[in-house]
């Protein structure tokens, strides 16, 4: 099963490589991993998406918790939560395609954030599935480049993953 796990880490050099090293050393799957500092500059927050059966995911969480740099961990998939991923797509936008691309962008509530005579950069935020759907919808051959942030997530309700 797919799990999305949020981790508060000490914002120390090397913390990220400990996590990455853990996944490769123990052969765990890692679909995506994003990390950035939080409002508290001593902490970074990492979101990682992994897959595995219950036992493996349990071990992954235990092993993550065991890292000395891990301050707190939450398996978002265990409760109601919101997931968002950001994507930028560079597409070929020649004269005849421009209108169609613009229309698709509107339908998906995406934004065109860069325009040249022959191309657009389209920005889209949402659940990963929505991003997948947008890519599938684009006309064949239109895509020049896709860049995705990997999902981040937050639990619903007033409780937060904080110190």
């Amino acid at each position: 099963m797919r799990h999305i796990i949020a981790v508060l880490l000490e914002n120390e050099a090397g913390a990220l490589s400990r996590v990455a090293g853990l996944f490769s050393a123990r052969g765990y799957n890692i679909e995506s991993l994003t990390v950035a500092p939080t409002d508290d500059p001593t902490l970074s927050r990492m979101t990682l998406v992994t897959t595995g059966n219950d036992e493996i995911v349990e071990q992954i969480k235990k092993q993550l918790n065991k890292l000395i740099d891990t301050v707190k961990l939450l398996d978002l998939s265990e409760g109601p939560h919101i997931e968002r991923e950001m994507m930028m797509v560079k597409v070929r936008a020649e004269r005849e395609d421009r209108e169609e691309l613009k229309r698709l962008t509107d339908i998906f509530r995406a934004k065109i954030i860069d325009v040249t005579d022959t191309s657009y950069v389209i920005e889209l935020t949402g659940a990963s599935r929505k991003l997948d759907a947008f890519i599938d919808t684009l006309p064949g051959g239109a895509i020049i480049e896709v860049v995705r942030s990997g999902p981040t997530g937050i639990a619903r309700g007033e409780k937060g993953l904080v110190l």
Binding site: E55, E58, Q59, K62, Q63, N65, K66
Partner: peptide, 11 residues
């Protein structure tokens, strides 16, 4: 003392 030792190999 180490939770990750528990149910690692044997449930």
């Amino acid at each position: 003392v180490d939770p990750s030792s528990i149910s690692k190999n044997v449930k």
